[in-house]
Measured scan of single mutants.
Amino acid sequence: MAEQVALSRTQVCGILREELFQGDAFHQSDTHIFIIMGASGDLAKKKIYPTIWWLFRDGLLPENTFIVGYARSRLTVADIRKQSEPFFKATPEEKLKLEDFFARNSYVAGQYDDAASYQRLNSHMNALHLGSQANRLFYLALPPTVYEAVTKNIHESCMSQIGWNRIIVEKPFGRDLQSSDRLSNHISSLFREDQIYRIDHYLGKEMVQNLMVLRFANRIFGPIWNRDNIACVILTFKEPFGTEGRGGYFDEFGIIRDVMQNHLLQMLCLVAMEKPASTNSDDVRDEKVKVLKCISEVQANNVVLGQYVGNPDGEGEATKGYLDDPTVPRGSTTATFAAVVLYVENERWDGVPFILRCGKALNERKAEVRLQFHDVAGDIFHQQCKRNELVIRVQPNEAVYTKMMTKKPGMFFNPEESELDLTYGNRYKNVKLPDAYERLILDVFCGSQMHFVRSDELREAWRIFTPLLHQIELEKPKPIPYIYGSRGPTEADELMKRVGFQYEGTYKWVNP
């Protein structure tokens, strides 16, 4: 592979701008107003304001973009700056750019259920340069409990009458099928589907988006991507930290609602779906819905739930269990780990287990898709061969690698495990991989909904998990304890083995 010439960040961002501006969906010269509902909250200060700053800094926003914060707290732009700027990672050389960014910011205080507050917000936006005809993007960085009041008031008082209007809704989209349907029906009564952007930030990850290209742009994968060759698929999300004093919020939802029903299920769809007619948003989402419709409700015998306990040999936070978090209700049975087996009941995947695993306070930070292939028929190497695996590593250190057998150097035919490896950090030294939120917010500006969740996708996802969630809430089974920093409950490994996964433990990928 030829040595790549190092590029400056300015040059890299210039390439990104060229890609972005050559499309006809990006209205570079139009006025846009980006409204952050819930501007005083954690999500706004840690993710949304920093993301908008990065896009502005790199010249990736339309030229005439204004940012308006809205929340109940009586704040000023200076207050917003004070709480969000520490997350910007701005350099001293960017000081003038930073001043320009905050000059485009404003803030309006108001209630979430008060019509007069929204009329005041609308008047404020109209007073901005060309504000009355601007395109408006409303980001709901809010708890779902206020979605209905907020969307109703936005629709009645704050819509642009000339430009387009788009609304970005953060997960969780309800707690179960019934609450999700209620919320979807409410929002759909106010906005068209092409105006609604239900954001799952995992769909903005580079390697998640790469799944489609790997599958449908490489001839070698087509013939082997089926039940005849693939023994099982494992989708993993692991965090090495616990709730760390923020367990009160987590306890309301648990690990299945927080990660599995959305992030992991979306990745499953991209692995299992048929080739779409095109890369058009609805063509892709149509195929994802077909996959979900082929999955039956989760069966309790295919589920393992766990909850982390303190590690007596650990240090600091590792010595504390979930129930030691003062914000967690006493005696909570909320799971911090889950392993679930699903089956896609169609011709391509009949009988292939899709194993979804996620948890907190585990032994490493990792998100990946792992396809394990069947054993080689007619073994001539005296059971020395391990199964081939194709691994798409989402985070950290984005990579695609194939675990395969090669001859060990020497005189004899002794096979050993090795890999074919594409590590993004080595291959793409001159490429700026956008943060997931950067990519998705740019998608909203461009009107691309491919990486957002459609209402029928959402409904099918909740259909699969709601009976299990209701059973857990009714019966309150005690989750299996696992030690902070471990791989999780051993019962999860036993479940995976029972459905056909072979864990060798003899080879570990190392970032080159």
Rank of each mutant, 00 (worst) to 15 (best):
E3A: 08
A6R: 14
A6I: 12
S8N: 15
S8F: 05
S8C: 06
S8K: 15
R9Y: 15
R9C: 10
R9L: 08
T10P: 07
Q11K: 11
Q11A: 15
Q11W: 09
V12R: 14
V12Q: 13
C13W: 08
G14M: 11
G14N: 15
I15T: 13
R17L: 12
E18T: 08
E18Q: 15
L20C: 07
L20E: 11
L20P: 15
L20W: 06
F21W: 14
Q22E: 15
A25M: 15
A25E: 15
H27S: 13
H27V: 15
H27P: 07
D30K: 15
I33K: 01
I35Q: 04
I36V: 11
I36D: 03
I36H: 02
M37Y: 10
G38M: 04
A39G: 03
A39N: 02
S40G: 09
G41D: 02
D42A: 01
D42S: 05
D42V: 00
L43A: 01
A44E: 00
A44W: 04
K46V: 02
K46D: 02
K47C: 00
K47H: 09
I48W: 02
Y49R: 04
T51D: 04
T51E: 09
T51P: 00
T51Y: 06
I52N: 02
I52S: 04
I52V: 10
W53C: 01
W54S: 07
L55C: 11
L55P: 02
F56K: 06
F56G: 02
F56V: 04
R57Y: 00
R57E: 03
G59K: 09
G59A: 07
L60Q: 08
L60E: 07
L61C: 07
P62Q: 06
E63I: 13
N64H: 13
F66D: 05
I67M: 07
I67T: 02
I67Y: 08
V68T: 06
G69A: 10
G69T: 02
G69D: 04
Y70H: 09
Y70F: 12
A71N: 03
A71S: 12
R74P: 13
T76L: 09
V77L: 12
V77F: 13
V77P: 10
V77W: 09
A78C: 12
A78M: 12
D79K: 08
D79E: 15
D79M: 10
I80W: 06
R81Y: 07
K82L: 13
K82W: 11
Q83W: 11
S84P: 03
E85G: 10
E85L: 12
P86K: 10
F87V: 06
F87A: 08
F87I: 07
F88Q: 05
F88N: 05
A90D: 06
A90G: 08
A90V: 15
A90I: 13
T91Y: 10
T91G: 12
T91N: 13
P92D: 12
P92L: 11
P92C: 11
P92T: 14
E93P: 10
E93W: 09
E93S: 11
K95N: 10
K95M: 15
K95D: 10
K95Q: 13
L96I: 14
K97D: 08
L98V: 14
L98R: 05
E99Q: 15
E99M: 09
D100N: 14
D100V: 10
D100T: 13
F102A: 07
A103S: 15
A103F: 10
A103E: 15
R104K: 09
N105W: 12
N105A: 07
N105M: 12
S106L: 12
Y107P: 02
V108E: 07
V108W: 07
A109Y: 15
A109I: 11
A109D: 12
G110Y: 00
G110I: 01
Q111D: 10
Q111M: 10
D113G: 10
A115I: 12
A115Q: 15
A116D: 15
S117H: 10
Y118M: 07
Q119N: 15
Q119M: 15
Q119K: 13
R120Y: 15
L121S: 00
L121G: 01
N122K: 12
N122T: 14
N122G: 12
N122H: 14
S123H: 13
S123Q: 15
S123C: 09
H124K: 12
H124Q: 13
H124G: 08
M125I: 12
M125G: 05
N126Q: 13
A127S: 10
A127F: 12
L128E: 08
H129N: 15
H129Q: 14
H129M: 15
G131T: 12
G131A: 11
S132T: 15
A134T: 15
N135T: 07
N135L: 06
N135M: 10
R136N: 09
L140F: 11
L140T: 07
A141L: 00
P143E: 04
P143V: 11
P144A: 07
P144N: 03
P144K: 01
T145H: 06
T145K: 05
T145F: 11
V146G: 02
V146C: 10
V146F: 05
V146R: 07
Y147K: 04
A149M: 11
A149N: 13
V150S: 14
V150H: 03
V150N: 06
V150K: 00
T151C: 11
K152W: 10
I154Q: 01
I154N: 01
I154H: 01
H155A: 13
E156D: 15
E156I: 13
S157K: 12
S157E: 11
S157V: 14
S157H: 13
S157P: 01
M159F: 15
S160A: 13
S160C: 13
Q161F: 13
Q161H: 14
I162C: 11
W164V: 09
N165A: 11
R166M: 04
R166L: 01
R166H: 09
I167K: 00
I167D: 00
I167W: 02
I168N: 02
I168S: 07
I168G: 06
E170S: 02
E170Y: 01
P172D: 02
F173Y: 10
F173G: 00
F173V: 06
F173L: 08
F173E: 04
G174R: 03
G174L: 03
G174V: 00
R175H: 14
R175S: 12
R175D: 08
D176W: 03
L177H: 05
Q178M: 14
S179F: 03
S179K: 03
S180W: 01
D181W: 06
R182L: 15
L183P: 04
L183A: 02
S184C: 10
N185L: 12
H186L: 07
H186I: 10
I187S: 05
I187D: 00
I187F: 09
S188W: 01
S188K: 13
S189W: 07
S189C: 10
L190I: 14
L190A: 10
L190Y: 07
F191G: 03
F191R: 00
R192S: 11
R192N: 15
R192Q: 10
R192V: 13
R192C: 11
R192D: 13
R192T: 13
D194I: 08
D194Y: 09
D194E: 14
Q195V: 05
I196K: 02
Y197E: 03
R198Q: 01
R198N: 00
R198T: 01
I199V: 07
I199R: 04
D200F: 02
D200A: 01
Y202D: 01
L203K: 00
G204R: 04
G204A: 04
K205G: 03
K205Q: 00
K205F: 02
K205C: 02
M207D: 00
M207V: 06
M207I: 07
V208K: 03
V208F: 04
V208Q: 00
Q209N: 10
Q209A: 10
Q209G: 08
Q209M: 05
N210M: 03
L211W: 02
M212T: 08
M212R: 05
V213P: 09
V213D: 02
V213S: 11
R215H: 00
F216H: 02
F216A: 04
N218A: 02
I220S: 05
I220N: 00
F221Y: 15
F221N: 08
G222P: 11
P223I: 04
I224N: 10
I224V: 15
W225I: 08
N226T: 09
N226H: 10
D228V: 08
N229Y: 05
N229W: 03
N229A: 09
N229C: 09
I230T: 05
I230M: 07
A231T: 08
C232A: 15
C232I: 02
C232G: 14
V233G: 03
I234W: 04
I234M: 15
I234K: 11
L235K: 02
L235D: 00
T236A: 06
F237I: 12
K238L: 01
K238Q: 00
P240Y: 10
F241H: 09
F241N: 07
T243C: 14
E244G: 09
G245Y: 10
G245S: 10
G245F: 09
R246A: 03
Y249D: 05
Y249G: 03
D251H: 04
E252R: 11
E252I: 10
E252Y: 09
E252F: 07
I255S: 01
I255W: 02
I255G: 01
I255P: 05
